[in-house]
């Protein structure tokens, strides 16, 4: 559905994108991760026909974004990272404006708009001026706007930025629903860890380069060379921590009030062996498990301490 080949964008001497290659199949939810200024928004702007690449090709549903921008615009719903609304319009007028801008007949819009407002939980705000909506509501209204022409692809640039936790959850639920509707979604977000269960693939971009790309589980597995084991014992915790530091395959041991965190480079067999050793030393083990790594850890691991997401 989205096919990017050797895409580059240069501003003067600055390379915003360097030879990006990306293929997103139909119906996939693609999470775009990277620090601020890494090139996420630039890539999305190019896909949204708002910016021209310096070189390379970007296609949406087979249409080149530079050669057939009108066809591409029919197929995409774009939500920028920062956006404004026409404050003097009412919620329904706002959607009517965009619907009409996509050449949807009024009779069709009359039926469509209530459904969209229901999807984004704004049915009770249909007659309210956009000015009077909260940030989260505006964000949801903007999402409804993206959907008005039933696009195949949604390009959502930080759709949950600046939202409180509750509004984030609401946004996540809507996105899950959109996924079920079969939309191809490309999303960059701070809430990727929260979206882990709905994102099929992720791409990690840094300094304009795609540093990792693939299924979330694959990337996690690839990075899990070093696991973190979490151990709790009944007593003599500090003594065990000191003893573990001398063990083979243990690179670091941290101890806090939640227990001992052991950075371990061994496989499953070595992990079992370590547990048997601890028990044989006479420690009463309450729990012994591998700490879960989430997308945020994956991202931090890949970008090696770059700027935070």
């Amino acid at each position: 559905m989205i096919d990017i080949q050797h895409l580059s964008k240069r501003y003067g001497n600055f390379d915003a994108l360097k030879d990006i290659n990306l293929f997103i199949p139909e119906g996939t939810v693609f999470g775009f991760v990277g620090p601020n200024g890494a090139g996420k928004s630039t890539t999305m702007s190019i896909l949204a026909t708002l910016m021209l690449p310096t070189s390379g090709v970007a296609k949406v549903d087979g249409f080149d974004v530079t050669q057939h921008p009108k066809e591409v615009r029919k197929r995409i719903g774009y939500m920028p990272d920062f956006f404004g609304v026409y404050d003097q319009l009412k919620t329904t007028e706002y959607l009517h404006f965009y619907g009409a801008s996509y050449n949807i007949p009024r009779s069709e819009r009359e039926q469509l708009i209530p459904q969209l407002l229901e999807l984004v939980n704004l049915s009770d705000k249909s007659d309210v001026y956009v000015d009077g909506l909260s940030r989260g509501m505006k964000q949801r209204l903007c999402l409804a706007r993206c959907l008005i022409h039933d696009p195949k692809v949604l390009i959502l640039d930080e759709p949950a930025s600046g939202l409180d936790p509750r509004a984030r959850i609401e946004m996540r639920e809507i996105l899950k629903e959109l996924k079920q509707m079969g939309k191809t979604i490309i999303i960059s977000s701070h809430i990727l860890p929260e979206l882990a269960e709905m994102v099929d693939e992720i791409g990690v971009i840094e300094h304009g380069e795609m540093v990792a790309q693939g299924r979330v589980s694959d990337i996690q597995a690839r990075l899990r060379v070093k696991k973190v084991l979490h151990i709790r014992v009944m007593d003599r915790e500090e003594e065990l921590a000191a003893r573990l530091q001398d063990e083979a395959m243990v690179s670091a041991v941290l101890s806090d009030n939640t227990g001992i965190h052991v950075h371990f480079s061994g496989g499953d067999v070595e992990q079992v062996q370590l547990l048997q050793n601890i028990i044989s030393w006479g420690y009463a083990v309450i729990s012994y498990h591998e700490a879960q790594t989430n997308l945020e850890d994956v991202f931090l691991e890949i970008t090696k301490g770059g700027a935070a997401v």
Binding site: S45, A48, T49, L50, K70, R73, K74, I76, Y78, P80, F82, F83, G84, V85, Y86, Y98, S101, Y102, N103, C142, R145, H149
Partner: peptide, 13 residues
């Protein structure tokens, strides 16, 4: 400046 232009430009107008 009001950040509405990009959305207007992605419509069919």
């Amino acid at each position: 400046e009001k950040q509405t232009l990009s959305m207007l430009l992605t419509t069919q107008q």
